[in-house]
Design a protein around this nucleic acid. Structure first.
Lengths: 135, 135
DNA sequence: CTGCATCCCGTGAGATACTG
DNA sequence: CAGTATCTCACGGGATGCAG
């Protein structure tokens, strides 16, 4: 059957686009690094391995749940390695893998742009809000 | 009063950290560009101004609500300009500002890393899941 | 010390219907 | 054509309590 409604065709296009997006490497990377705690964790681990409790202290406001969850995700993605030293009490250390290290230039680029341009963005926001308030 | 419980001190540290995070330019930029549709919109607008309906067509699966919402945010941040041509029917064009253009190298860097390394990440995930399944 | 399980709630995104 | 308004629902994330 060659005849489809316009709505059907649109739905197909959208489905194909969704599939494309789900597979898009850039989207996946963006989703990963934009996570609330990932960036902080990457920084915290940048200068060497770190214990769980030490990480909890550095990221002062992270909940245990989110810290563990984020670390697991990074471990699964091969960006971080988890090393357990059996002892009493247990000692667990996290460290960046070479792959995780490779993320640093990216984060640096983002940080650089942000520090150079975010004040302009903030100014734009203020101007926009002023116009909106004057309506 | 100089004496506070350990819990109080921790709460203060966390609050201060939260305030720091909220003000952090890098966090703000990350939150903005990691938005599901922002990256796509940036690409769609990269080669010149574009009408609302044209954008809707290019980002096949975006809802009107999200398209408008995302465009408003970008406009507010001074990354995009909205130009209304009064006519019947109305014609609205969106275009990148110079500030918005400046984001392209960042997005390129992210895209570059993703295309170069995400297959390794995917492999790491598969290996991790295999180990988990074998438990 | 390092974590997992559970409950709870706010935000955000989609669907749908209506307007200048 | 280019939106706005409202409803609903799922998911993320915090708090808390328990366990190896």
């Amino acid at each position: 059957m060659a005849t489809r409604t316009a709505a059907e065709r649109r739905a197909e296009t959208a489905a194909a686009y969704d599939a494309f997006l789900a597979a898009c490497p850039t989207r996946q990377l963006l989703d990963r690094i934009a996570d609330k705690w990932v960036g902080l964790l990457l920084v915290a681990l940048a200068d060497g391995p770190c214990r769980y409790s030490e990480l909890a202290r550095r990221l002062a406001s992270v909940s245990q749940k989110m810290l563990t969850q984020t670390l697991r995700r990074l471990e699964r993605d091969g960006l971080v390695v988890r090393t357990v030293t059996p002892a009493v009490p247990v000692r667990v250390e996290y460290a960046l893998t070479p792959l995780g290290q490779g993320l640093r230039p990216i984060m640096q680029a983002i940080k650089g742009w942000a520090e150079a341009n975010m004040d302009e963005v903030v100014a734009a926001r203020a101007a926009y809000d002023r116009r909106a308030a004057a309506s």
